[in-house]
Amino acid sequence: MSRKVQEPRGWSPYLAGALAGVLIVFSVWFTGKYVGASTTFVRAAGYIERAAVPERVGMMEYFLKEAPKIDWQFLFVIGIFFGSLIASTTSKSFRWQAVPTMWEQRFGPSRTKRAIAAFVGGAIAIFGARLADG
């Protein structure tokens, strides 16, 4: 797809953000659930590790605290993928992109470079998020 095709602008971030706030209020009201995402990566990592070394995962303190299971938050995180897919494909704003525009301007078009940085950045970010408990 050509970059010259003007992408639709989307909604005001104030409006979309406020609606997300209303959604949180309803979620807390009806189900008592507060939103979050980072615990899901712990549970998913526990699942994968358990398939390889079940005895070890069964003894690890953090996996006892945050057991590998599919819970509300796990489905919430998966839902985010589908919600974005629906919103973007129905508004002509979906675009396959391996290297973000701003990244490319600074670090060049190498996919490998971007992949390595994203992987390392992701590992660091989740470690910090879990340490801060947020």
Binding site: G17, L23, V35, F76, I78, I80, G83, S84, A87
Partner: peptide, 9 residues
């Protein structure tokens, strides 16, 4: 909830 959130994001 996730689908609506992702849509708004």
């Amino acid at each position: 909830t996730g689908i609506i959130f992702g849509f708004l994001f």
